[in-house]
Nucleic acid binder design. Structure first.
Length: 414
RNA sequence: GCGGGUAUAGUUCAGUUGGUUAGAACGCCAGAUUGUGAUUCUGGAGGCCGCCGGUUCAAGUCCGGUUACUCGCCCCA
């Protein structure tokens, strides 16, 4: 008996989980707003080329994780696997270079065909921030400080560590890559199968390997910091100095690399040990060549993305909604009057629903399950007397209150 | 794509060395009040034991396959 269930790697989000995720998004929008970021909502699918080119043909995302299909018009379409490329496409399409810098925030689903795991889904949700048009390292500091503030407001300052690294500019990165490949070629015999594959596809990734044999070789591998040219070195120094000035703690992790090809200079990850293998909760970096690569005007950029599910699992920031008031009209005339009463109570900010079904016993029972604070009972007796019966569901006490006094009584918490 | 674990009621789980009508708790429904809940009492509904096949006189239980979930690898938010 195959049950009707959501597609593998997708799921229904409701209840406490939905509240926690909504709280992450709300906090993000408020915090990013305070740094001058404004909303942008780009389509959740784009022409495949938009993702393929910047991410790199050989990247895992492009080579095996994208949801790509041909639509009915024969267009090659891909569901967004990440936000940055789409936002940059939008920047170009809309001619935003006229008004730099752009501070753009967005949130929503992204799609990757991966094996699901705790904190990893095929449809997952991200918050995303991009700062376009500033090439100074202080922009990196701004955007990382914003992430740190967000994490703090989510109560995660103690659960998360900022790991920071630089990939250098194009030139430094190329030099390092060569140096590294040469080193690993000399130690080929000891490398794991995965790392041998990475040697040709993404040698920097080997630095991040969890294989014990690899780790030994990596331990004595040449460092990025030894291959940085002067410009890259001073860029990184200014990022670090800025972070210290603004009070964001970090650790320099020489082994931190990025999956996407388009990153340059600053790369960072906020990681936690509380989510098993999916420890990265928010990550990003600088991507100075990306917009040009997509065919736009050369424009520097830096941004990050945070996993909403992962942040929500850690922070549990969602609040249970305020307790409702439930109106229980008995009879036709009372039912009509109840509409008016309900609207009055909503007018003072209360959460109000009406329960018109079944006997009073059933309705009170349901009210109890709904965590209701008050029941407002209105039958023929009440109606003719111009009152309602206001019942406090915590202590069981009830009394008659006139229509005119009801809102006031409820507000006073009586 | 690769490896480990799990699959029994709406939910969380029991279920002996294979043995006949598969259980508990919570939840749900009804009754004990005709206009008074959350407590209490009584009763009830709800399971092709994930699916397919094999071994056996006999399978929820053993074996194989499959699917889903889950943990890890890969990769990533």
């Amino acid at each position: 008996m195959s049950k009707l269930q959501p597609v593998r790697g997708t799921r229904d989000i409701y209840g406490a989980e939905a509240r926690n995720m909504a709280a992450v998004v709300e906090t993000f929008r408020r915090v990013a707003g305070s740094y001058g970021f404004e909303d942008i909502a780009t389509p959740i699918f784009e022409f495949t080329e938009v993702y393929k080119r910047p991410l790199g043909e050989a990247s895992d995302i492009v080579s095996k994780e994208m949801y790509t299909f041909e639509d009915r018009g024969g267009e090659d379409i891909t569901l967004r696997p990440e936000f940055t490329a789409g936002v940059c496409r939008s920047f170009i399409s809309e001619g935003m270079q006229q008004n730099l810098p752009c501070r753009l925030m967005s949130n929503g689903p992204a799609f990757r065909y991966e094996r699901p795991q705790k904190g990893r889904y095929r449809q997952f949700h991200q918050i995303n921030a991009e700062l376009l048009g500033q090439d100074a390292p202080e922009a990196d500091v701004d955007i990382i400080a914003m992430a740190w503030r967000l994490l703090g407001e989510l109560g995660l300052a103690d659960k998360v560590v900022l790991e920071l690294n630089t990939l250098g500019d194009k030139e430094s990165r190329a030099t390092y890559r060569e140096t590294l490949v040469r080193y690993f070629e000399d130690h080929k015999g000891g490398l794991s199968e995965d790392s041998l594959r990475r040697l040709s596809s993404n040698p920097l990734r080997i630095l991040d390997s969890k294989d014990d044999a690899d780790k030994k070789i990596v331990a004595t591998a040449p460092l990025m910091s030894d291959c940085l040219n002067e410009a890259s070195r001073s860029f990184f120094e200014r990022v670090k100095a800025g972070l210290e000035a603004v009070g964001v703690p970090y650790v320099h992790n020489e082994r931190l690399v990025r999956g996407m090809d388009y990153y340059t200079h600053t790369a960072f990850e906020f990681v936690t040990t509380e989510l098993g293998a999916q420890g990265t909760v928010l990550a990003g970096g600088r991507y100075d060549g990306l917009i040009e690569q997509l065919g736009g005007p050369a424009t520097p950029g830096i941004g990050w993305a945070g996993g909403i599910e992962r942040l929500a699992m850690l922070s549990k920031a969602g609040k249970t909604p305020a307790r409702p008031i439930i109106i229980m009209p008995m009879g036709e005339a009372a039912t009509l009057k109840a509409f008016e009463i309900a609207e009055d109570l909503r007018g003072i900010g209360a959460i109000v629903t009406s329960d018109r079904g079944g006997n009073l016993k059933k309705r009170l029972n349901r009210a109890n399950k709904a965590r209701a604070r008050f029941a407002v009972i209105i039958g023929e007796d009440e109606l003719s007397g111009g009152v309602v019966t206001l019942k406090d569901l915590d202590n069981g006490e009830q009394r008659q209150v006139s229509f005119a006094d009801l809102a006031h009584s409820v507000k006073a918490g009586v």
